[in-house]
């Protein structure tokens, strides 16, 4: 019995030594980033430029979704977790129970513009009208001051982060009407609206062009300035979460994204810079 206890104690001590020596082997010049596919293009482009100026640094970036990123932060398999939504109480609880203190840094904002064909006479909608259009309660443009034509509602597919935001901020949890056209990308929505004079759609603010007309919502035009100031309501912050305040290479990388150069990348990939 005594022998067994000694053996057990020896295994425990050996385990501690092995664990800590293995942890010490973690390379200081590597960074693993996992999470939101919405934030993915920002992280990818920023990583490319960051590594160009620091040849010894290796950054691995992958998507999977905000939930997957936060799960990776909890498991210790990533250094930065990208998220297109604030962390949930359930996730904070799991983090804290496992010794992780999740701290989020806002690196950009994502504004969603409501677009129609340039020939459409409607210039402005309220959030209630917009919700009624997508819920199927308003079906003709004449009900919101336009021509007597049926409204063709175009939405993003349910797997997209843009749809999640639209559902939360506009539909308030309600479902999109059954005959709404669900498309797989911002570009596809914009293209569909260009080709359909009676269509309405929504895209990330970076996808606005002269081919479509963006509507004023609740009296506010969607611009980078109104999104950052919070006046424009259909917008969300994009986060990078770390265990505690960012430090080391993670801090350098996040500081780079928040720099003038990094915020230019944010704008170039279709999001709203916060600085």
């Amino acid at each position: 019995m005594l022998k067994f206890k000694k053996l057990g104690l020896l295994i425990l001590i050996a385990s501690f030594v092995t664990v800590y020596s293995s942890e010490a082997r973690k390379r200081p010049n590597t960074l693993t980033i996992t999470g939101s596919t919405t934030v993915l293009p920002i992280a990818q482009r920023a990583a490319e430029e960051f590594m160009e100026s620091r040849p010894k640094v290796n950054i691995s970036v992958r998507g999977g979704g905000s939930g997957v990123g936060i799960a990776a932060l909890i498991d210790g398999t990533c250094d930065i977790s990208d998220a297109s939504r604030p962390i949930k109480t359930k996730e904070i609880t799991t983090c804290r129970s496992k010794g992780i203190n999740p701290v989020g840094t806002v690196i950009a904002k994502d504004g969603i513009a409501i677009i129609v064909h340039p020939s459409n006479s409607v210039k402005e909608l309220s959030l209630d009208q917009l919700k009624a259009i997508y819920a199927g309660e308003i079906s003709k443009w004449s009900e919101v001051g336009g021509r007597t034509k049926p409204i063709v509602a175009i939405s993003r597919d349910v797997a997209s982060g843009t749809f999640e935001v639209f559902k939360k901020l506009v539909l308030k949890g309600d479902k999109t009407k059954a005959d709404a056209l669900m498309l797989a990308s911002n570009k596809a929505v914009a293209t569909a609206v260009v080709g359909a004079p009676d269509a309405i759609g929504y895209v990330g603010i970076g996808y606005l062009s002269s081919d479509v007309k963006s509507l004023v919502i609740e009296g506010v035009t969607p611009t980078n300035e109104t999104v950052v100031s919070g006046e424009y309501k259909i917008a969300r912050p994009l986060f990078m979460y770390t265990d505690g305040k960012p430090k080391g290479l993670a801090k350098e990388f996040i500081d780079f994204i928040l720099s003038k150069e990094g915020q230019k990348i944010v704008e170039n990939v279709g999001f709203v810079p916060i600085k």
Partner: peptide, 9 residues
């Protein structure tokens, strides 16, 4: 119940 995780392997 102690558990030690060797993340690297």
């Amino acid at each position: 119940f102690p558990k030690f995780h060797l993340g690297t392997i």
